[in-house]
Design a protein around this nucleic acid. Structure first.
Length: 840
RNA sequence: GCGGACGUGGCGGAAUGGUAGACGCUGGAGACUUAAAAUCUUCUGCCCAUUGGGCGUGCGGGUUCAAGUCCCGCCGUCCGCACCA
């Protein structure tokens, strides 16, 4: 035995043994209870980063823990391999997105394997391969047949110089990231999945997800945004009474209808567009209003712009009351009806708009019925009592809403309606590196599904990226096909699917991967739903909602019988690191810096003093990343894994630090030393035995609750206790058990030590230790003695002592006596086995 | 702008409404060593002090015998906002 644990040797040895034994291959036919542990699969961006290491270490601990508990575990890994960065690399480095991606996958697979994750590599998949996306195309056709796919216009970011569609990320301060041109919103015909058909059940389903964080459920609930309100049509003053619907609006505050002072329509509204066709001033304004990107954050923080069209609509409750129709840039065509009525007194945005354009601001809600004339200095959005509102006067907000809806429905000009904020899922992307949408456009037949026997529709390899835009549009032959229906000349759809589609069903494909169909229902259901899903909180809404929708759509189509894909969800925090700034404001890499005199930091190249920036998420732009690979070289896999589990609670950010990884490496060696000095003896050690059993209980509970930092703390305590204990049978047992307890977190060390002790088999196959509940309870407890809620002393007494006895002991305490000064206590509170509080 | 979270020593953090600071890091002192590294022992919230006492969980209120924990109002930071993944 060497006196230091050598990860360079041990890591490779055990990784090879596990691979040879196929230890982590998931057997769908196993009679054991199944456990499906899944971490969000990575985008192959180049190299593994610390965030990946943290994410996959957490999942790995759980997977190994479940195995030791006797489960058949499915713990797979794959690649979310389509996406924009591959195309950017193609443009910048003149490499094909496919070869760039596949090379990254090779690198990252090798890196992951070095960390010793208990993964079933036989199920590895990459979404960019036809044997994955071909099945996705089949599922898309299923959705089309089920009526869950529609085609309609929606707005995109348009770069007028590069003549290309931009992602929100590519719009910086309203300008295209490459061209620098002012971006505008432009309508495009696109494919949508009807997620809104599932709005109600996606909302209801949240109630069943009791192993999800409350915050994620709340965010999804707000995102779906169910609200009850009134939908109705304004009639233009120029139209005939009882005619067609002119301007349809929806409001959640029908009670404020007498406070309306304008109607605002989106620049993309049919009325706005019709006006623009005839009037240059309207066209000019619309062009101005369409400047900037489509993202909500941008639209809502942009300066509010309005244009009075001169048109007027008739107030539904007063034939003689006219409201001006404005075009406003903050009204989105994609939300609701693309039009709204403004109530400046009781809506923040309307208030701002009305103030800017001098529109009337009227109070129609007050704190009480006699507040009708109270001055209105700012928008009051709280519910109250209706005032200045004709027949509504005196009604509380909720009743007033109901009354307006009742009258609208009776008179037939509007109806109460449940509205969702959730919009249909636009899946068309004007890009090459994604799943081709399996549709053919024919001038005679319209859009036609690609016949299933022609799947997969494979991306052409011979494409160029020397000009912006979608290379599929420019490809000389790929798009030219015959119409499957009329056999006439037709064109392939050149849009590809949103990469969120790829990640909406990969967890099903992991569970079952036949060659001739997306998955086998019976086999998939042996594993699904995923027992524990782990990933970043940044996916709390979109990815998770889309995957939930996709699963429900499959269920509705009879292809699977589960409704929720992820039983347990855990959102982990980011890995952060200090940043460093040079005097002239450049971000510096940690390895560009060295320690200078007096604890100062010095830039190696210039000798200039470096200032410490804030601790931020590791990112290339801030140059505060730490590449896992050299760390693995230096400290070994277990130290890195252990550090990822230590210190920070997993849901919070973890700050990378040199001293942290050093501490973890030190622990690895400490455990190794314990194993090397077997102090066997026949003697007993009840104290250590209790400590051991308490630790088994604590560690199991902590891992079960994904509180890895707590399991690490408990294991540090046990390790210290063993180190301090003298020889005994309990000590030997404690060392052996310690190895089992650290095995999920530090598997290489555990295996090496297990073998060194001469234990049989691999620890990866060993059973998780049991504990004796009787050993968890001490016979004596320490009581806190409080006077008026402040701690004054502690006393040790037998567990389970009667209240009266405890009180007597407490009152006899010298601190208590001096505090009472001979008087009787006003009150004595006894919390059994915990504390006594004396109110003097 | 809208939605969600978070805020505790020098640092990361622990604490079913019940002894705030477990555990780790850093730092101090000591042991071993020719020396260093490694390792071990011990101390380490702040202030005053001799035993001891006071103050302390972002800020301001409140509920309670008792509040880091519950309620109300602020401040700050982070995440998401539908074409980044």
């Amino acid at each position: 035995m060497t006196d230091r644990f050598d990860p360079a040797v041990a890591d490779r040895r055990w990784q090879q043994r596990w691979a040879d034994a196929e230890s982590f291959r998931a057997d769908s036919d196993s009679p054991k209870p199944k456990a499906y542990v899944l971490e969000m699969f990575p985008y192959p961006s180049g190299r593994i980063h610390m965030g990946h290491v943290r994410n996959y270490t957490m999942g790995d601990v759980l997977a190994r823990f479940r195995r030791m508990q006797g489960h058949e575990v499915l713990h797979p890994m794959g690649w979310d391999a389509f996406g924009m960065p591959a195309e950017n690399a193609a443009m910048e480095k003149k490499v094909h997105p496919g070869s760039w991606t596949r090379q990254n996958i090779d690198t990252m697979r090798r890196q992951l394997q070095r960390i010793g994750f208990a993964l079933d590599w036989s199920r590895e998949l990459a979404t960019c391969e036809p044997d994955y996306y071909g099945h996705e195309q089949a599922l898309f056709l299923d959705l089309m047949e089920a009526g869950l796919v529609t085609r309609r216009e929606s707005e995109v970011n348009w770069d007028p110089v590069d003549m290309t569609v931009l992602a929100n990320e590519q719009v910086i301060d309203g300008k295209g990231w490459r061209s620098g041109a002012a971006v505008e919103r432009r309508k495009l015909s696109q494919w949508f999945l009807k997620i809104t058909d599932f709005a109600e059940e996606l909302l209801d389903g949240l109630g069943t997800l009791d192993q999800w964080p409350d915050k994620v459920r709340l965010m999804q609930q707000n995102w779906i945004g169910k609200s009850r309100g009134l939908q109705f049509c304004f009639r233009l003053a120029s139209s005939v009474p009882g005619g067609v619907c002119d301007v349809e609006v929806f409001t959640t505050r029908p009670d404020t209808i007498f406070g309306a002072s304008f109607v605002a329509i989106s620049p993309g509204h049919p009325i706005a567009e019709a006006l623009a066709a005839e009037r240059p001033d309207v066209a000019d304004f619309i062009a101005k209003a369409r400047a900037g990107g489509t993202s909500a954050a941008e639209v809502e923080t942009a300066e509010k712009l309005g244009f009075d069209t001169g048109l007027e609509v008739v107030h539904p409750f007063d034939e003689n009351w006219r409201l001006p129709v404005w075009i406003a840039n903050f009204v989105l065509m994609d939300y609701g009806t693309g039009a709204l009525y403004g109530v400046p007194g009781h809506d923040v945005r309307d208030f701002e708009f009305a103030t800017k354009y001098g529109l009337p601001i009227r109070r129609v809600v007050a704190a009480s019925g006699d507040g009708a004339n109270a001055p209105l200095v700012e928008p009051e959005t709280e519910p109250g009592i209706a005032v200045n509102s004709s027949f509504l006067d005196g009604l509380p907000t909720e009743q007033a809403k109901a009354e307006v809806i009742r009258r609208a429905e009776t008179a037939g000009w509007g109806e109460g309606k449940t509205q969702y904020r959730l919009r249909d899922w636009g899946v068309s992307r004007q890009r090459y590196w994604g799943t081709p949408i399996p549709v053919i456009h024919c001038d005679n037949c319209g859009p036609v599904a690609v016949p299933r026997e022609q799947l997969p529709v494979v991306l052409p390899e011979d494409v160029s990226f020397d000009v912006p835009g979608n290379p599929l549009d420019r490809h000389p032959t790929w798009g030219k096909v015959d119409c499957p229906q009329c056999r006439g000349p037709a064109r392939r759809e050149t849009d590809t699917l949103d990469t969120f589609v790829d990640s909406s069903w990969y967890f099903i494909r992991f569970a079952s991967q036949p060659g001739d169909k997306p998955f086998d229902q019976a086999e998939a259901e042996k594993w699904l739903p995923v027992g524990q899903y782990i990933g970043g909180v940044e996916h709390a809404i979109l990815h998770l909602l889309y995957a939930r929708f996709w699963t429900r759509a499959l269920e509705r189509m009879g292809k699977i019988s589960i409704r929720e894909p992820f039983k347990g969800l855990f959102t982990q925090g980011m890995v952060t690191h200090e940043t460093y700034l040079s005097p002239d404001g450049r971000w510096l890499n940690p390895d560009e810096i060295e320690a200078g005199p007096g604890g100062a930091l010095i830039e190696r190249a210039t000798g200039a003093e470096v200032s410490r920036g804030r601790v931020e998420k590791m990112s290339k732009s801030r140059k505060n990343t730490v590449d896992p690979e050299p760390i693995l070289d230096r400290y070994g896999a277990d130290a890195v894994r252990w550090f990822m589990l230590s210190d920070s609670p997993p849901e919070r950010d973890l700050e990378w630090s040199e001293s942290g990884i050093e501490g973890a490496a030190r622990f690895v060696q400490r455990v190794w030393r314990l194993v090397q000095t077997p102090a066997r003896s026949d003697g007993e050690d009840v104290v250590l035995k209790r400590k051991l059993h308490r630790t088994i209980a604590a560690v199991g509970e902590a891992i079960e609750g994904l509180q890895f930092n707590k399991s690490v703390a408990a294991l540090y305590e046990l390790t210290s206790a063993i180190e301090k204990a003298g020889p005994s049978t309990a000590r030997d047992e404690a060392v052996r058990t310690l190895l089992l307890l650290i095995a999920p977190g530090a598997p290489h060390l555990a295996e090496e030590a297990w073998a060194a002790r001469g234990e049989s088999g691999m620890i990866a196959d060993a059973a998780w230790p049991d504990y004796d509940p009787a050993l968890l309870i001490d016979e004596e407890v320490t009581y806190a003695i409080q006077i008026n809620g402040k701690l004054r002393d502690t006393i040790v007494a037998a567990r389970g002592l009667e209240r009266g006895e405890v009180e007597k002991l407490a009152l006899a305490n010298s601190k208590v006596q001096s505090a009472l000064g001979g008087n009787d206590p006003r009150k004595v509170i006894v919390v059994p086995d915990r504390l006594v509080n004396i109110v003097a």
